[in-house]
Simulated scan of single mutants.
Amino acid sequence: MKTIRYAFWGLVALVLVLVGLANRDIVTLRAMPQAMADLLHISPDIQLPLFVAIFAGVGIGLLIGFLWEWMREHPVRKQARRQGKEAKKLRQELATRSDGTGHSKDDVLALVERS
């Protein structure tokens, strides 16, 4: 199984290197359209290789997706945390009611356990 995993990640690395080599040309990324930049007399642009823009876009998209999913699952994690605390409290209560031999200290519970 590890061999398949290593082969998969090796293939992914090879594809990323090939994409990077095929897209080495310099491109200009602009934060706003040229007409608006001329109107405001600012030109926020940057020049970088195309593969950097591609990989940065994929990385930013992954980060946004992970953040969105983390926020979406917040109620589920909150409920699991609450249920975990409740289970811990019940285990502690059960341990205090038992004398360590498995027999209950409570008379009513001892009668129920005998039957």
Rank of each mutant, 00 (worst) to 15 (best):
P44M: 11
K89C: 07
I4V: 12
D38S: 06
H103N: 08
I60L: 15
E86W: 02
G59K: 03
V12L: 15
R91P: 00
P33Y: 10
P49K: 01
V17M: 10
N23Q: 14
D45H: 06
P44E: 15
K2E: 05
I26R: 09
K2R: 09
V15A: 12
L29Q: 02
L48H: 06
L90G: 08
V76R: 14
L21H: 01
T28M: 15
W9Y: 13
L109D: 11
V27W: 03
I26V: 09
L50I: 01
E93F: 05
D106G: 08
Q92M: 09
A7E: 07
S98Q: 11
I26E: 10
G65L: 14
E69K: 02
H103V: 09
T28E: 15
P49V: 01
A56T: 11
A80T: 02
R91Y: 14
S98G: 06
F66S: 03
D38H: 12
Y6G: 00
A80N: 09
G84P: 02
L62M: 14
E73D: 04
L50N: 05
V108R: 12
S43E: 11
D99I: 03
V112F: 01
K2V: 07
E93V: 05
M1F: 11
Q83G: 01
E69D: 06
V112N: 00
A56I: 04
F51L: 03
G100E: 04
A13E: 11
R114F: 01
V19L: 08
W9K: 01
L62E: 08
G65M: 15
P75H: 07
R82K: 15
S104M: 10
K2I: 09
T3V: 06
T101S: 07
V17C: 11
A87S: 15
P44S: 10
A13Y: 10
R30S: 09
I42N: 03
T101H: 00
A31L: 11
H74N: 05
I46V: 11
G102F: 13
M32K: 07
I64Y: 12
K105D: 05
G84V: 00
G100I: 07
E113T: 10
W68D: 07
K105F: 11
R30N: 08
H74P: 00
E86L: 13
H103T: 06
L111H: 14
G102N: 04
G20K: 04
A22P: 00
F55Y: 15
L50W: 04
K85A: 07
A31R: 08
L18C: 07
D38I: 02
L62G: 10
V112R: 04
V12M: 14
L40F: 07
K78I: 08
Q83I: 02
D106W: 08
K88M: 05
R97N: 04
A31I: 05
W9E: 03
Q34V: 09
D99P: 02
K105P: 00
V112Q: 04
Q47E: 13
F51K: 02
R91D: 14
S98D: 15
R82N: 10
